[in-house]
């Protein structure tokens, strides 16, 4: 390793190919699991997929995905977060990394691993050590003021999804206001409006994911920075 070693905290990694890691975060009930299920349904025939859920109380989300048969049981893993869903995706990603790597080891080669965060508040965001890209899911029923409130999920996520547009009229939420406010803080970063009720395949979001995968060296990507530090990969 020579002189480089002093500057590189990670031992030289074996050329392990790995999947793209996609985080899906957002407030409680905004539609993260519904979106995860939709992406699995839309992409499972063209991509090798696995999912990690971070339930707050139970294995509700994992159970939902299993019940709906969007992926085989052994491609879905639930991680518990000790009352702190944001800690598990941001400050201490150990359990999620472990789950992602275990799924990859079991099903190698995978193209895409989705990590669904437990429902949290607007300040939650995924660590770059855990995911390559992140989607933040809001829903219109929280009111059209939410994009204006900002927070790292709204401003910095790679894709902002505003879900449940079918409810906008009932709630009295103005989608144009949401689009304008989101655009103001997000610059070039994309925003998609969805109704997973009306479009259970989430076609536009699936297309965005395909685009991300095209950008990345496909089908399998560079070793993750933490890969070399994990067990049994000395």
């Amino acid at each position: 390793m020579g002189g480089m070693h002093d500057h590189d905290p990670h031992p030289a990694a074996p050329p392990v190919s790995r999947a793209l890691r996609l985080g899906i975060g957002g407030p409680v009930g905004s539609g993260k699991t519904a979106l995860t299920a939709a992406l699995c349904r839309s992409l499972r025939d063209e991509l090798a997929l696995a999912v990690v859920t971070n339930d707050i109380y139970t294995t509700e989300d994992a159970d939902f995905l299993r019940r709906n048969g969007v992926l085989s049981d052994d491609r879905i893993t639930a991680v518990r977060t000790g009352c702190c869903p944001h800690t598990a995706i941001r400050d201490d990603i150990a359990a999620n990394l472990d789950a992602v790597e275990s799924l990859e080891e079991l099903h190698r080669p995978l193209d895409l691993v989705i990590v669904e965060s437990g429902g949290d508040n607007l300040t939650a965001t995924f660590s770059r050590g855990l995911v390559d890209r992140q989607i933040f899911v809001l829903d219109v029923s929280g009111g059209d003021k939410v994009p204006r409130k900002g927070g790292p999920g709204v401003t910095a996520s790679d894709l902002l999804v505003v879900n449940k547009t079918d409810l906008a009229e009932l709630i009295g939420a103005d989608l144009a206001v949401m689009a304008r406010d989101a655009g103001a803080v997000r610059g070039e970063r994309p925003v998609l409006f969805t109704s997973l009720r009306e479009d259970p395949a989430a076609a536009a979001v699936a297309e965005w994911v395909r685009g991300v995968l095209r950008e990345h060296p496909h089908p399998h990507h560079a070793p993750h920075p933490h890969a070399a530090a994990s067990v049994n990969e000395p």
């Binding site: 139970t58 294995t59 052994d74 275990s102 079991l106 067990v231």
Partner: peptide, 12 residues
């Protein structure tokens, strides 16, 4: 509610 799966090195 949670089925047992063999997760390879998961337990190791």
């Amino acid at each position: 509610r949670e089925q047992l799966h063999d997760h390879g090195r998961w337990g190791g």
